[in-house]
Design a protein around this nucleic acid. Structure first.
Length: 129
DNA sequence: ATTCTTACA
DNA sequence: TGTAAGTA
């Protein structure tokens, strides 16, 4: 399928699909007319990529994690790149740190929402005062 | 009508 | 990311 169809199926803007390609996250083939040709499995892959990207994970890390996502559980460990283990461990710690940060913000927002609801209950028409 | 690349906001 | 230009 071409970029427009993949965009509709994944909800990812075609602009970003081309960007993902630049980042080495996906490698669509080309049609004779130069149009990008995406395989069906990329629909699922793009969904996972979006999840990672939306979590704020740098694309350079996503590239290393992607092969783990494309398989069910049988992770192939042939690519024993030198510092990859440490790189991923370091990234995992950053994720934990980010999760803690987001958890705090979520709780703070939850309290704020509660305060807003309470205020609305006490003074229903005070929004324009 | 769609997509492509390049480039600017 | 969105959009514009000029193509294929």
């Amino acid at each position: 399928m071409r970029i427009g169809e993949l965009s509709k199926k994944t909800g990812v803007a075609s602009r970003m699909l081309r960007y993902y390609e630049e980042q080495g996250l996906i490698s669509p083939t080309r049609l004779d007319n130069g149009y990008r040709d995406y395989q069906d499995y990329l629909i699922d892959r793009v969904g996972k990529i979006r999840g990672l990207v939306d979590s704020g994970i740098p694309s350079r890390i996503i590239v290393d994690i992607l092969p783990c996502l494309d398989q069910e559980q049988d992770i192939v460990v042939r690519n024993v790149e030198p510092g990859l283990r440490d790189l991923l461990a370091q990234e995992r710690d950053r994720m934990s740190q980010k999760i803690d940060f987001l958890t705090q913000n979520r709780d703070a927002i939850t309290k704020y929402i509660a305060a807003l609801d309470e205020a609305a209950t006490e003074a229903p028409l005070a929004s324009a005062s």
